[in-house]
Write a protein that binds this DNA or RNA. Structure first.
Lengths: 248, 248
DNA sequence: GCGCGCGAATATGTATACATTGATTGTATA
DNA sequence: TATACAATCAATGTATACATATTCGCGCGC
């Protein structure tokens, strides 16, 4: 690796800080001191400050009373609420897409993604499911879905919520070893994909209320997967993305 | 007035910039140059930068590609979408409050606010309606409503959307001279207050779906008032809060 | 024993000089 | 005339010295 001098120091500091926060190096509630961080990162205060400011925009930090920043802490309720919130926003996007009508070209593109998603798990044995590829394509699907509504305002807020690691659509697309039942992961993929198809059908048919309801229920799969992984590993420290952010 | 040396320069710069943006001194899309702004405000680059960063968090600025900031521009669609988005989020808050149950004390407090709202326009002639007091109390009502759901995540995002001047709940509580019909303003107040009461009833009765639907429809009054004021003043330059933010 | 205030330590806030980057324009050459 | 390259300029990025504010502890007075 070495020192990647190619990018500027603000980006380096932002990346490094984000990593530490997400992976638990800086637990929720931790106060960040500019000087200490500067010395630690070997970067002057100015870019460090800038980085903290950006991470506050991102929602990982919050401004402390009386100046400075601290790591934002999330309770388990915050995590489930964030997932529910994503569902509500994706529901709004889906409803608007249905009500206002989506372009055929965009719908076709999403259809291609859905076919590829099928190929990740259809007709293969459990241990051959390509979870990584599924997560990638699933992310693409949700991105295109948000685009469909044609509203920059909705898109922006949705991006914002999804930027929280545990609220991302693919956060709890888990490998087959991380959960309760033996093939629970596979079954949740099958259900999710059925919802993807139903959602697109509803949008094509201009059934706004149905599209909204499906999008919401779809997000609740993530909530269910979260709860299942908590049963398997109650101290929450597991490898799930962003679980290190959880306090209490 | 003079120079209020009491607060720090970042806050001064933030306030001054926000004022200029909201009142149209800096139209949407305007690129903000640190040096020029510094000289103009007589404040060094550092606090100006900090101010821009905060206004970006607030949603009034956006980071320009390749560094720097520019004033965020809103189309008329963005405005209506923002109002709709507020409705969706308030709907979520209302639904969660109904489903999870709200504390009696909080419900009582809101009841007091509702009674006060009545006194702003009940039994007085049109030109005696206290629109300012109504707007203030209406803001309080919507704030308490958001609190009711008990979710910090939802509360936070709702605050964020409401911070856009034209998306605030009281943005289009207009005086009796600003709109189409003669007593349209009064009638919209009566309808809005009826929705306030119905919304609280739904929450008390744990009718989540109803509460959500009412909250959404309630936000659409603001949209209707916006459209009415556009009929009266199509070039959008009118005194409505934040209308100067609109481009095109 | 408790509260108040003062002062030192330590934090962030501010100004500014200097570095770097990226765009633009002008010029030389094919 | 078109293209490529280099110089210049104007913007943001970075470091750092200094200013101010906040906090915490200690001592004094009540």
């Amino acid at each position: 690796m070495g020192e990647s001098k190619s990018v500027n120091l603000t980006k380096r500091a932002t990346y490094e800080l984000r990593q530490r926060i997400i992976h638990g190096g800086l637990p929720g509630g931790t106060r960040l001191y500019e000087v200490a961080l500067s010395e630690d990162l070997q970067i002057s205060r100015t870019p460090v400050r800038e980085a903290m400011s950006r991470l506050a925009e991102e929602g990982l930090l919050e401004r402390a009373p009386g100046g400075g920043f601290q790591v934002r802490g999330f309770t388990l309720s915050d995590v489930t609420d964030s997932i529910e919130l994503r569902g509500v926003l994706e529901g709004m996007a889906a409803r608007l897409a249905a009500e206002r009508g989506a372009e055929a070209a965009s719908l076709d593109e999403i259809g291609v993604i859905l076919d590829r998603l099928d190929s990740c798990f259809a007709g293969v044995s459990l241990d051959q499911v390509d979870f990584d590829r599924y997560a990638e394509l699933n992310g693409q699907f949700h991105e295109r879905l948000a685009d469909l509504c044609g509203s920059a305002v909705v898109l922006r807020e949705l991006e914002r919520v999804k930027s929280l690691p545990f609220a991302s659509p693919s956060a709890f697309v888990m490998g087959s070893d991380n959960e309760g039942g033996p093939d629970r992961a596979l079954r949740s993929l099958i259900v999710a994909q059925a919802q993807h198809r139903a959602l697109m059908q509803a949008i094509r048919r201009r059934e706004g209320a149905r599209a909204e309801a499906i999008a919401r229920e779809h997000a609740r799969i993530a909530r269910g997967n979260l709860e299942a992984s908590l049963v398997a590993d109650p101290d929450v420290s597991g490898g799930m993305p962003g679980m290190a952010l959880i306090v209490r």
